[in-house]
Design a protein around this nucleic acid. Structure first.
Lengths: 413, 413
DNA sequence: GTGTTTTGTTCATACCGGATACAAAGTCAG
DNA sequence: CTGACTTTGTATCCGGTATGAACAAAACAC
């Protein structure tokens, strides 16, 4: 509040010392005990002990008083590290075709409290954002937790650096809506405690799904993780490289929906034909199965229900195999370009994978250049509300970079 | 030599302090003076001074004794920083369709000495590698410089972690030749001083071109740099992210040659049709222009000569435009997936860009999703022997990460 | 019980970079 | 030429972070 008094910290001094890495290890479940923390950080026991003590003093983690010895191990049992029970949270907001969902998310991707609002999305993004933020603010008051930031997931490409939603296709929003600014405004209007100027982030929902799964779900441990998912309309992609989301120089990377997977296919709004977007989304699946979309339930729900419950039906199975082949072609192209070490699928594509895992893996291996020599693991997403958790990850990131910043927000809470 | 006595430095302590970043700034020409070094590093003048003094003591850089004042500036003139005149070098080797080239490369990508061997490439990679390394070893002896490592560029995808050349298409080599092991063996046989166990790296030539151009050429300052190039046969791609080469989890990323750019095109050895590999390489260009490849000069030389000298000719121009359109389609697909902030083109593609820059930029902007909102800069490569310099960059990397390792090699020199 | 193994803590120490004050080397105004 | 100003370089002190060694603690094996 006293202007710019900080020392110039342009390049060096990212996250003082080992605090940040240590918190990240606990956050992602890779440091169950202080002993593991020691070896994972590559520091001495003395340092790891001091770091754990400091994180505990910050109220972020707890160390159990009476260590329970793991069976069959020698030596003094190590104290276990837990994420603090009543520690701080961040506010996560997700906008989707059927409404919004908000949650308080603690470290470790734990959803502490959540609520949702249904109904049609009005054409005015500011309105639904402020409604969602007010709901989140109420959750926060009820919980009594300290809030350290907020994140937003929207089903659209979000352009950097201004945070504009470029193609909110199945929302009634205007293209180019400045969602980040609107989100920040809504946070300011609701006077969410702890959420100051800098602490509002936004991103594409598939990107955030990938981030969440990488930290807490099926993508854990992967170095280069590719995520492909289809929710309502269209197909989205995301890439996590070295633990960081790669969203391109202007936030528009992994627009995989316009890979050509069927040269004689349906025309796409991008001007081309047979794009993944129109050939492998829920609507395409329903169409291929000869069904017309019903009025109730989202397209995704109708498609996945059909896939899970009637895969024995010939027309459904044929449609599934058709979409698997198209999806496999698209994924193979991505494998040739990105060479990820793991692929995870969400939404309809997850259901397709689960319906016939071998077929998809075979198509990808067959069409990717070096597929024969191994093949990339392809897994379904595992988290509930993964885009929401991913939005929370955005908000947690500054804390993971430098846990000491929780002190700055403390007097405000 | 005394076994493993080093402290475990698994994660933290990458490159002690600001030494590494400082050397990298000088190396890439972004720190002409100590004053600039201070601001670029974001440290105090005291630290920058100490760091510069240490790099000078290590024999890597020199600080001029009598600073020359830049015209029109106030204040005390800053001492300029130079790369040491007789500093250490690395050995770089490039294998290409017409033979090999070796060079001693200093900091800053400076080629200190180079020589080449022509003639047909024998089917035995070990033979040409050992010949090239012997030539390099002779250069090294003559120069009297300390050698800190060696790097190899080959015109093939190189699989990690073993360093096998998967598709040395236009060399007579067997697929899967273990080039890294052979290179290390050749280095050991030639007893190149200073090149110990760990210090031999290898990579695909287009990857290394991208790396070199990013550090010293047309890619300088780009955060996400895409490079596409065609040398002899086929098309290669490479991506530099945040200053580091992204070669995928097993070194096989950016195999862009099999993007489909012409659904009714010529069959490709990958099983598909109309791949960039067979639609936009020198042979394709010569064919489109109605020429048959002659016996003398490489395909690349014949194609670029034609493009530069006879672009007024209708058939040449038509062929050029055809290839530009195909290339643009492929690049647009990559832009949609990778969203780089700069693109550089090498080999034939550089010549195509220079023949008609506007057409290529227009095609890419038209076919990429958000092309209208800006457009990615597309530039020609600028360095001589860029793959060779890139191979040297691989070898320099450990020194840039921690300049103090030059001390380890000192007693061996 | 006595070793052995592993974990946690205490304390002295090393090192790196920050902060400050001061010195040096130029420009600019007169 | 002189003095004010600006910028760069250096000396010194200081604080924070991690190391390393010694010691203590908590389990198992016998």
């Amino acid at each position: 509040m006293d202007g710019v008094t900080h020392t110039r910290t342009t390049r060096l001094e990212r996250g003082r010392g080992a605090l940040g890495p240590a918190l990240e290890l606990v956050h992602t479940g890779r440091a169950p005990t202080r002993a593991v923390l020691t070896s994972e950080l590559g520091v001495t026991r003395a340092t790891a002990g001091a770091v754990a003590a400091e994180l505990e003093a910050l109220g972020l983690i707890t160390v159990d008083a009476h260590p329970t010895a793991a069976a069959g191990t020698q030596g003094r049992p190590s104290h276990r590290l837990f994420i603090a029970d009543q520690g701080p949270v961040v506010l996560a907001v997700q906008i989707h075709a059927d409404g919004y969902r908000v949650a308080l998310v603690g470290l470790g991707g734990r959803i502490v409290a959540t609520t949702s609002g249904c109904g049609t999305i009005p054409a005015d993004p500011a309105r639904i954002l402020s409604e969602a933020v007010r709901a989140g603010s109420a959750l926060l008051r009820d919980s009594g937790r300290q809030c350290l930031g907020a994140g937003l997931a929207v089903p659209s490409a979000v352009a950097e650096p201004d945070g504009e939603a470029l193609n909110p296709l199945h929302l009634a929003w205007p293209a180019g809506a400045p969602v980040r600014a609107l989100f920040l405004q809504a946070l300011a209007d609701a006077k969410v405690p702890g959420v100051t100027e800098h602490v509002g982030f936004s991103g594409n929902d598939v990107n955030l799904t990938a981030l969440a799964e990488h930290r807490h779900g099926a993508g854990r441990g992967a170095r280069d993780l590719l995520c492909v998912a289809s929710g309502h309309r269209g197909v989205g992609g995301a890439l996590v490289l070295d633990g960081r989301l790669h969203s391109g120089s202007s936030g528009l990377a992994l627009e995989v929906g316009h890979l050509t997977v069927n040269p004689e296919g349906a025309p796409c709004h991008c001007g081309s034909r047979g794009c993944l977007d129109v050939e492998a989304d829920p609507l395409a699946f329903l169409g291929a199965a000869g069904r017309t979309p019903g009025p109730e339930g989202s397209l995704l729900k109708q498609a996945t229900d059909l896939l899970r419950e009637e895969y024995a039906d010939d027309s459904v199975r044929a449609a599934g195999e058709l979409l698997i082949d198209r999806l496999g072609l698209g994924i193979a192209g991505l494998v040739n370009i990105l060479n990820p070490d793991r692929i995870i699928l969400g939404g309809l594509h997850r259901a397709l994978l689960e319906a016939d895992p071998e077929r998809l893996r075979a198509v990808v291996a067959d069409r990717s250049l070096w597929g024969r020599s191994g093949g990339v693991p392809i897994l379904p997403c595992t988290l509930d509300h993964n885009a929401l958790v991913g939005a929370a990850e955005l908000a947690w990131q500054p804390v993971l970079d430098d846990p000491l910043i929780v002190l700055e927000g403390e007097h405000a809470g």
